[in-house]
Simulated scan of single mutants.
Amino acid sequence: MKTQYDLIVVGGGVLGTFHAYHALKAGMKVAVIEKDKMPKSATIQNFGQVVPSGMDSKWQAYGRESLNIYKEIQSQFDISVRQNGSVYLASNDEEVQLIEELSQINKVNNYSSVLLNKKECLDKYPGLDTGYVKAGLFFPEEVTVEPRSMIYRLQEYMIQHLGLILIMNTAILNCENLPEGIILESASKEHYFAKKVIICNGSEFKNLYPELFFRSDLEVSKLQMLQTKPQKNYKLDGSILTGLSIRRYESFYECPSFNEIKAKENPDSLEKKWGVHILFKQAADGSVILGDSHQYASAENIDDLGFNLDMDIDKFMIKEAKKIINLPNYEIQNRWFGMYSQCKTKDVFEHTIGENIHIITGIGGKGMTGSAGFSKENIIKIFNK
């Protein structure tokens, strides 16, 4: 019999990798099996924001634990974490009211945030349009990462320091309970053995369990993003979230005025049609990432979202971004979309087959922020630690 692992994780994205991380920290023998040469889906197709401030109270707790985990790893190995904070910029009196209410909620939750007046926002964020901003809410503990490199650096750290076995270019086509454990079979007929298996490969789990997949309430979100050319002699710290983010992020749902304010919005606006909220984040090379949009389809109808970028959405996001921050240049060097699977009715899709095969997927846009903290709790639950 080949090597038997305490845990095999199928899927090398951020959710699967952090499940492996916590199992390794608990002293287990762990392998991560990834179908591609490198993880390339939602984990690298995002902004690289770790923003517990945008989550409801339950997920904010996971996000805050994630912050601690990111910072602990960064203190030992460079995985691209930068603690430069996040800010929500209010553009009108309703949004000011919401950030003031969230500030009070944060005080009760003992989560550090600082209200900024208009002048403080303009001083802190160069190029910010004086006619746009009225106030801001700043979260000093929050961090950014480089999404196109973080996961590879994290896995390298885990290989060097924790003993992770990383198996790439290996598609798992069968996963079966046996009396002595789990056997996994790859497309090339290789076999792997484990006491437990966690499947964290997004909507790709349809290849293993198609009937379960088509019965699930998973949906897929398509998000468009853009990246400018590097900005010369310009620095924009942290994650910049704007009025449309205030009106979209789940943390604000808990504000007393939220429902009344949302009810006044124009249901036929383009930002509603395309699910747009405007964010800015400067990458390590000086470029600025802009976005994003949200279009949805049930997981079995993912092809309905199309395979092309909608240039009308891109043009709309650039036009709105220019109203907020006057960057030295808005020349676009990259455009792309990400596809995230998420649940319609639950925070995460979780299903157990037998006692030892655990499907955990559909974390949606919470992945980069919430995975590290959520996985820590989940490994304790799965292994009864």
Rank of each mutant, 00 (worst) to 15 (best):
K315Y: 10
V348M: 06
M317Q: 13
F316L: 15
K346I: 00
K346D: 13
F349A: 08
M311T: 00
Y340I: 14
P328W: 02
F316T: 08
Y340E: 10
S341L: 09
K344N: 08
I325P: 10
K315F: 08
F316W: 10
I332V: 05
M311H: 14
N326I: 00
N329Q: 07
K346Q: 15
I318W: 02
F337T: 12
R335K: 13
G338E: 03
Y340H: 07
D310Y: 06
G338A: 06
F337M: 09
I324H: 06
G338R: 04
E320G: 05
I318Y: 01
Y340T: 14
I332F: 10
L327I: 09
Q333R: 02
W336F: 08
M317A: 05
N329T: 14
C343D: 06
D310S: 13
D312L: 14
A321K: 13
T345L: 04
I324V: 00
F316I: 12
K319E: 15
F316V: 12
N326L: 04
F316N: 03
R335G: 01
D310E: 13
G338Q: 11
R335F: 01
N329M: 01
G338D: 05
K323A: 04
K322T: 05
M339F: 08
N326H: 14
N329A: 06
Y340N: 11
M311C: 03
F337H: 04
P328K: 01
Q342S: 15
M317L: 12
N326K: 15
D310H: 10
D314R: 02
Y330W: 08
D310R: 12
S341D: 15
K344Y: 01
I324N: 03
N326T: 07
M317D: 09
R335M: 09
K323D: 02
A321S: 15
K322W: 03
W336K: 04
C343Y: 01
I332K: 09
K323Y: 02
K319L: 09
F316Q: 10
E331Y: 12
I318M: 10
M317H: 06
L327V: 08
I325G: 07
A321H: 13
T345P: 00
N334M: 09
I332T: 00
I325R: 13
A321F: 08
K315A: 14
N334G: 01
D310G: 07
G338I: 02
D312V: 04
D310Q: 13
N334I: 00
E331F: 11
F349E: 13
I324S: 03
N334K: 14
E320M: 12
K315Q: 14
Q333H: 09
F337Y: 15
F349H: 13
N329H: 03
F337I: 14
M339Y: 12
K323G: 03
M311A: 05
I324C: 01
E320K: 15
K346R: 14
Q342D: 11
K346T: 15
N329P: 00
T345C: 02
W336L: 04
Q342A: 13
K319T: 04
D314G: 12
V348G: 06
C343G: 09
K319Y: 12
G338Y: 10
I318E: 02
M311D: 07
D347T: 15
I318F: 02
A321N: 10
I318A: 03
D312N: 15
N334T: 00
D312S: 14
R335C: 03
K346G: 02
M317I: 07
E320H: 10
F316E: 04
I318T: 03
N334S: 10
